[in-house]
Computed example of a mutant assay.
Amino acid sequence: ADDYRHRRDVFLNALQGSRFTWTPSQGSFFQLLDYSAITDEPDHVLCERWTREHGVASIPLTPFYREAPKSTYLRFCFAKSDAVLLEAAQRLCAI
Rank of each mutant, 00 (worst) to 15 (best):
G55F: 10
D43N: 07
H54W: 14
S36Y: 04
R66D: 07
L61T: 12
S71I: 14
D43M: 01
E41A: 08
D34A: 07
L46K: 09
P60C: 06
A57M: 10
Y35G: 10
A68E: 11
T39F: 01
Y65N: 04
T62D: 06
P63I: 08
A68R: 13
V45L: 08
F64T: 07
D40H: 11
V45C: 03
P63L: 09
R66Y: 04
D43C: 05
L46W: 14
A37N: 03
L61C: 09
R52Q: 14
V45N: 02
K70T: 14
S71T: 11
W50N: 04
R49P: 03
K70L: 15
I38Y: 06
P63V: 11
T39Q: 00
T39N: 02
P63C: 14
R49L: 10
R49V: 11
E67K: 14
R49S: 12
D34C: 12
D43R: 07
T39L: 05
H44M: 09
H54Y: 15
E53N: 15
E48N: 05
G55L: 05
A37I: 00
V45T: 08
K70V: 14
D34M: 06
F64D: 01
R49T: 05
L33D: 04
D40T: 08
C47S: 15
V56G: 00
D34K: 11
E53Q: 15
R66H: 05
V56E: 01
T51Y: 13
L33Q: 07
S58H: 04
F64W: 12
E53L: 06
P42E: 10
T62K: 15
W50D: 01
L46C: 03
P69L: 03
I38S: 00
P69R: 06
Y35C: 04
P60N: 08
D43W: 11
I38A: 01
P60L: 03
R52F: 12
S36K: 11
I38Q: 03
Y35V: 03
W50M: 15
A57S: 11
R52A: 05
D34G: 05
R49G: 00
Y65W: 15
P42D: 08
P42V: 05
E53D: 10
S58M: 15
E53S: 12
S58C: 15
P69N: 08
I38K: 00
Y35D: 01
A57Q: 08
K70S: 09
H54A: 02
D34L: 14
Y65C: 10
S36A: 15
A68C: 04
S36I: 00
A68P: 14
K70F: 01
K70Q: 11
C47Q: 05
E41T: 02
P69Q: 04
L61A: 07
V56H: 05
I59P: 00
F64E: 00
E53M: 09
Y65L: 09
T62G: 04
P63A: 10
P42G: 00
P69W: 09
E53H: 02
D40K: 15
P42A: 13
I59Y: 12
P63M: 03
E67M: 06
H44A: 13
L61V: 12
R52D: 09
D43G: 00
E67A: 06
L33H: 03
R52C: 01
S36F: 11
L61D: 07
G55K: 08
G55T: 02
P63G: 12
A68H: 12
A37W: 04
R52V: 09
